[in-house]
Nucleic acid binder design. Structure first.
Lengths: 73, 73
DNA sequence: TTGTAGACTCTTGTCGACC
DNA sequence: AGGTCGACAAGAGTCTACA
């Protein structure tokens, strides 16, 4: 499975834990809502700057974002 | 300090620990050497796919790459 | 609320060359 | 070995609109 898909799944997982909509997350992170949809569905190769914004908005540390079974090799 | 700069510093740190050149790292990760230079110097907003390639080539886990003082908030 | 599509701008990422 | 430049194709990221 590609890293894009794994990142998308992890974002969706954390967003659901927070109980907020894609639009609310996009607003918090100050990025486009339709772009969040694409990222969650593994269709975009997100840059580190936008990934950091999303992870901040999800209120986790970068290292904890990647501390999930999917990311371990 | 921007995430681009932090990522660049961390890549350089880990590359130096491995004792390999930018060119050797670029070859291992299958990305362009001049691009590695720019990334290490914090001038490029790298995508998750290329960042994963570099981190693989540096032989660390994603979560360990981001488990450094610079990245903790 | 989420997903998709189209059109758009600007940057990523590659490559060759030179220092 | 590392840094920079210039040119380029490809893709990131935005926005409007509609289902």
């Amino acid at each position: 499975m590609s890293i894009k898909v794994k990142v998308g799944q992890r974002i969706r997982e954390l967003r659901n834990e927070l109980g907020i909509s894609q639009e609310a997350l996009a607003n918090k992170a100050e990025i486009d809502r339709t772009y969040v949809t694409d990222v969650e569905n593994g269709r975009r190769n997100i840059s580190i700057e936008n990934l950091e914004k999303l992870i901040d908005a999800l209120q986790v540390q970068l290292k904890d974002f990647f501390d999930a079974p999917n990311f371990i090799k």
